[in-house]
Structure formats: C-alpha cells, structure tokens
Design a protein around this nucleic acid. Structure first.
Lengths: 336, 336
DNA sequence: TTGAAAGCGCTAACAC
DNA sequence: GTGTTAGCGCTTTCAA
C-alpha cells in the first residue's frame, strides 16, 4: 500500500497528529516544519482523502449530474465548474442521467453514498423527486438550466427575455410572418425552458399587436431530427414564413440541414435567429444571429451558490437565479 | 449525519458484521435477509463508499483525466466510459489537464490521493512523467488517443492507416497537388498522433511514386485558428493545390471558415478530406469526406483493459492497442 | 450462519 | 507546540 501519515511520523520521529496538523496548515515549529516537508517529499506522501473525508465528513468532492457529456453547452458548463472547483480544492464526480428522471435519482443516490459535499444537477424536467436523497441527507444541491418544480436552489438563464429579444429583432427588421420551432411538446409540457422560450415569442406578438398564426408554431423536442422535420413542415406550408426562430442548438442544426437540402437561401428567402450560440453559429454560412447563454457565468454562479450552502449559509434559500442572455447579430437576417 | 450500518444493526437486532455481509451478498439466513431488507428500505440506508474504500482499499472510482470537456471527441469517449463503468458499479472522477503536462501530473496525483482504483488518461504528448504517481502507487493507468513515450498500456486508433486511406482516395480521384494541414509543429515534435497522420500522407506519395511538394505541407497546431491560417497561406501560393487533407477537427472548422471567406468552391476548386468525423462533417455543405475514429470502441477497449489490470491480470503488459478508423466518402471531393 | 473485535488512514479533543 | 487517544463507517478475521 501507499505511504501513510504513519510513515511520515516514523520518518520524522514526530507524532501522527503533528503531521496531520502540519498537513492542514496548523501551527508547527519552524524546525519540524522543515523536517516534515523533507520527509513528505522523500516519501512522496499524499494524504488519503477518503480517510480524511470519513473523519471530517468533508470529502471535497462535488457531484455533477448531467444529461450527457456530449452536449456542447453542458460540456462548457461542466468544464468551467471543474476548473473553478479545482482551484478551491474540490474535485468533481460526474454521472449522466440521459434525460431520465429515474436515472437521475440513481445518480443522486450514488453521489450521496459517496458522501459528496454538494451536488450540481443540470437540465432535467418535470417532477424533482430525484433530489430526495440529497435533501434527506442534508447535502446541498443546486439545479442548473432547467428549473424543477420543487422548492430548491437553481440557476439558469432568462430564456423568456432572450427569446423576446430575438423575435423582437425580427419584428424590427419588418418581419411579420415569423415561425417558431419550439421545444415544447405535448408529452412533456413541464419543460420550463422550452415554455419560456416560446413565451418570449408570444409576448413580442402581444406587445407589437401582431397576430399569431398557429401554423407557424411547430413543435419539436430539442433534437436534431425534430429540427429537420419542423423546418421541412414549415416549408410545405402554402404560405412560407419570412423568418424563423429556432429555440435550441440541436434543432438549429437540424433546421439548417433541411434548409440546405431544400435549397432555401438564407437570408434572402428566409431569415433565421436561433437560441444558443455555440460552435456552429459562427462556423455556418451565413453566420447565425443568435441568443447566447452565458455558460461560464452559469457555472460560476452555481458553484458560488453551492459553496455558500456548504458553508451552511442558507439565508436566501431557495434562491432562483436567472442570468441574462446576450444577443449576437450576424448575417442570417435580412431587413424586409 | 446519514444512516449508517449501525442504525440498521440496531433496527434489526443483528450484528453490524451481519449487515455488512448481507450488503456484500454474503450468506445470511432467509429470515434475517427479509428483516434487513425491510430495515434498509425503511431507513433509506446507503453504505458509505468512502469508508468501504478505506477498509477494503477498493473505491470503485476511476479517475479520468483529459484535456477538456469541451472537445467533442473526448466528450464522446468520456460519456461512453461513464456509461460502461457505471454498469460495473464504478463512478468516474474527472480532471482536466488542459494540455499541460504539469497539470496532468497534478491531476494524477490528485486521483491517487483519492484512492481511485484506476486511471484513464486521454490525449497528452511528450514525456510521461505525469504518470509517476500512479505507477509508484501501483494504480493501473491506461493512456488513450495519444501514446506517451513511457512503457505503458495504451489504446488509440491507427491514425497512419486512416490518413493513408484519406490521401489515397484523393490520389485515386486523380489529384496530384495535394496539400496537408498537419498538426505537428516544431515546438512539440513529440505529438505522435500528429506525426502518424502526416506519415500516412508521406506513405501514399511514396507508394504511388508521387513527389512531395514542401510548400503543400503546412504546419498547424490542432487549433481552429491554425486551421484558418494554414488554409489562407495555402491559397496565397502561386500554384494552388487541388485538394487538401486536414488532420483534425478544429483545424477543419478553421480551414472551412477560411474557405468560405476566400469564396473557394468545394469541391469544384478544391477538394477536401478530413481527419475526425464529428458533428460538423455531416452538417457542413458540402458534407465532408472524412476519417472517423471509433470513439465508442476506444472507450470500451480502454475500460476493458483497465478492468483487467485492476483484477491483477498483467499478462500482456504493456499493451498497445490500435483500433482501425473508418473512411466515409461524402461530397467534398471531386474526380479530376 | 452470526457476533465481537481489530483496524483501514485520518482528524480532533484533550492533556501535557 | 506536541503527543495520546478516541473514533468516522466499514470490512474482515476469528470464535462461537
């Protein structure tokens, strides 16, 4: 087995507890400090964090449960969380729920049994029973991106406002026939982020006294395929829209693929604005005018909030933080 | 604090060790089995894995150290590893090295101090001193994608063959003026994957008795920007190439952006084949003919190998596994 | 089969 | 400042 604190004690002729104190930044005599440092280096001692956690009931481990590592947006968020947490001495354990609440529940239980100090959970809709294990064990948990229905800490972005801005921009460019490819679908009406994005659309129409054309509102499910299908369906309409608002990244890529296949010219024949501003938005031609969610800030704020909960500061529980999106005008919209 | 084995013992009037045995699938009297099950459910008992690890020196935790969570290819690999490992009862701890060997060393040490049962390390060039901590502590470690110089287990793809296939295809379509945007750069000549991809190119020229034009070999560093710059430089040449082989994903996107800006028509004016077959290859217009690395198989094989090492089977150490790439013909190459 | 007891590596009281 | 000691929650002998 590896080097333990005992070995260091033996090597230095000091007590175990002195070594422990030194390792935790406690006060140690100058001379001993040197001796210990020396021994630690020589032996290559590395404190066993599991044992430390067992004793101090602090594992310095944070559980991150997310849909999948394959999504760009969540990848960015997770990468940032890892970075920030590492600086604070925490490491992260990840677990994918693949959009199943049942699996999410398992993930959370798993993390709890690992004694994580806190949990960050990304993107899950509907009933939040999956948080029970954490709550019962008094392990702080903050939800990201999609806000569950239970009373809990959460941080996300102000999707309604972001969507509003995107659609308003279209209106300001004199578009009236504006379609939207939404992520709300009847089987899963609980998906708040999807609803919020759609609400932004409705509100613009309301505020500008425009009439909503039901056939221009098509429902996808946030997947590539649904984006493709929705766009195709839109183009089969007798009267084409002059602009379309696509409400997430995967659907955007699906829609753009359909657009290419149908040989629709953007922005000449169809203007497009999209929610999520990731790789593809600036790589595609034309570049896509888009609403950006602040991945880094979302990560930073949720970590900050979680840290406060871990320190025991529950003053403002439950906190629901909504970060503003930003709007990036590029070349996919033309003025009518 | 949470429910411990003690609570279950008290609840059932059995000894702690009996509960432990039950929890680990040991032989317990039918009657007691029922009683324990009942109590576990009622109390919501979840064994503390840290304590278990401390005792049995098995944490059922695997450390994954990788460049960054933001890369698609590694995201896929990591996602798959998580899935497979979860099925086996393992969870993963991730740590990003951001292409710094020094940070990688820290990551590995960190994982070691967490008593992980094994380490999977992705994509790192040059000297492999960063593995020392794992090796010294006899913690199995397998390297993925990029193979370090030290004697160690590794699994990657057969990049040279993949590159060969791509360039050979170009030759078969009667291209002679074939440029390559390589990922080898003088400051980091140790990057084997980059060298292998370039070697594939050289070998085709050798085998087909073609002459290599030095000005057609441009050196990037696997980044978007370098892809952009290399493509631009290529187009400033007096004599343009008729085809280009781009040796990784980020450079491909950079090169494509340059291609769009320079208004180069693909494949009419320039054919392109690329290494890595991710999202963009099939979204872009035209779709990109590309070499695909088998992310899932790489993940599966490395996990399988690591598991064998954890079980103590070092029969074939050090094993260097190279999985075949596949070649996908799409619309970015024209026949001359 | 079951239970008592030792101990994994560490921290935290407490006495010195 | 330093050392002694008692556990954190669990597994694992070893007796019964």
């Amino acid at each position: 087995m590896a080097i333990t604190i005992k070995d260091v004690a033996k090597e230095t002729n000091l007590a175990i507890s002195t070594i422990s104190k030194y390792m935790n930044g406690g006060p140690v005599r100058q001379k001993n400090k040197k001796v210990i440092e020396e021994a630690v280096r020589k032996l290559g001692y590395n404190p066993n964090k599991a044992a430390r956690g067992l004793r101090s009931s602090r594992t310095y481990m944070i559980g991150v449960v997310l849909d999948s590592l394959e999504s760009q947006y969540f990848g960015r968020i997770t990468a940032r969380m890892e970075q920030v947490l590492k600086e604070k001495g925490y490491s992260i354990m990840v677990c994918c729920h693949r959009d199943s609440n049942e699996k999410a529940k398992k993930c959370v239980e798993f993390m709890v049994s690992r004694q994580v100090d806190g949990i960050l959970i990304l993107s899950l809709a509907g009933d939040a029973g999956y948080m029970d294990a954490a709550i019962n064990n008094k392990i702080p948990i903050v939800a990201l991106d999609r806000v569950p229905e239970t009373e809990c800490d959460s941080v996300g972005t102000n999707a309604a406002t972001g969507a509003y801005q995107a659609v308003e921009y279209l209106v300001q460019q004199n578009h009236k026939k504006i379609a939207v490819i939404s992520g709300t679908w009847r089987e899963n009406p609980g998906l708040r982020t999807a609803n919020e994005r759609l609400n932004g659309y409705y509100r613009v129409f309301e505020d500008y006294c425009l009439k909503v054309a039901p056939e221009f509102i098509v429902e996808g499910d946030f997947s590539f395929d649904s984006g493709y299908k929705c766009m195709t369906r839109l183009w089969e309409l007798e009267e084409h829209p002059t602009a379309v608002f696509v409400t997430n990244y995967n659907m955007t890529m699906g829609a753009m693929t359909a657009i290419h296949n149908l040989k629709i010219k953007v922005p000449e024949e169809l203007s497009i604005v999209v929610f999520d501003d990731l790789e593809y938005s600036s790589i595609s031609r034309p570049k896509l005018t888009s609403v950006r969610q602040p991945a880094q800030e979302v990560a930073d704020e949720s970590v900050k909030l979680l840290m406060r909960r871990i320190e025991g500061d529950y003053g403002d529980f439950p906190k629901c933080l909504k970060l503003p999106t930003t709007f990036h005008i590029r070349n996919s919209v033309r003025e009518l």
